[in-house]
Design a protein around this nucleic acid. Structure first.
Lengths: 127, 127
DNA sequence: CAGAATCCGCGTGGATACTG
DNA sequence: CAGTATCCACGCGGATTCTG
């Protein structure tokens, strides 16, 4: 058959463009890991820094800025000494977890198959 | 509350790592658009090239290579003159459309809200 | 403790030209 | 028509340093 019955929601270029814009955001190197870490609740900067493991100081700041700009994460600054900043998923951010879980399930089921395909690539890599 | 009830599937670092690896793939600049285009059925190289609009010759090749390596897209080469190559989503590739549609729905509902947040960013950009 | 600023290497992606 | 190869610019991301 030349026309599969599967027709996902994306039909117009507008939506596809917006979709890709957000995918680029959450698909970047650290955003996903940070969001995953924050599902456990409000976290301090250094707590996230240590949880994510591998993320640099600077990248965590940038990632959180991005999430904050998107309205997915709230930032609460406590002007104490020493200063304390708490981050948490906003209601909007929480809604993202559902489709994200769907993707996660797909990875659980088909991820290994993808990796096998990558390993046994047909067009062998040049010597 | 400090511990939301939402606990997505991702709990272990293993899965989160794999998830991010695949997110990076499908979240890259063109993969999503190409997959979306290919939901309509088997396509020739140039057909996709014109459908995606904005993608360069070279990037389409690389993107298709990636999808092929992942086993999401099949490549059929017809040794004729002129040569003809047809690409189609594999069964595995088709399974990806479901979670992708979930994400697409999220973007439909909450995407505009995200864009508004981006526009009215709290920490004003320095003059 | 949180984060802004600087420097820099590297990968990505665009334009172009060449092959089969 | 489909794909590869080369060149090059830009932005991401790491390491480091400095401030409140």
């Amino acid at each position: 058959m030349t026309s599969p019955a599967v027709t996902p929601t994306c039909g117009e270029g507008e939506l596809r463009d917006l979709l890709r814009a957000l995918m680029t955001t959450i698909g970047d190197k650290w955003t996903l890991a940070v969001v995953a870490t924050m599902t456990v609740g409000e976290q301090r900067f250094t707590a996230i820094l240590h949880s994510v493991d591998g993320i640099s100081h600077r990248m965590l700041t940038k990632t959180l800025r991005g999430l904050e700009d998107d309205g997915l994460v709230s930032r609460t600054f406590h002007a104490e000494v020493p200063p304390r900043v708490e981050y948490a998923l906003t209601p909007l951010g929480l809604t993202l977890l559902e489709p994200l879980a769907g993707l996660s399930r797909w990875v659980e089921h088909h991820g290994p198959a993808v990796l096998e395909h990558r390993a046994t690539r047909q067009h062998q890599e040049i010597s």
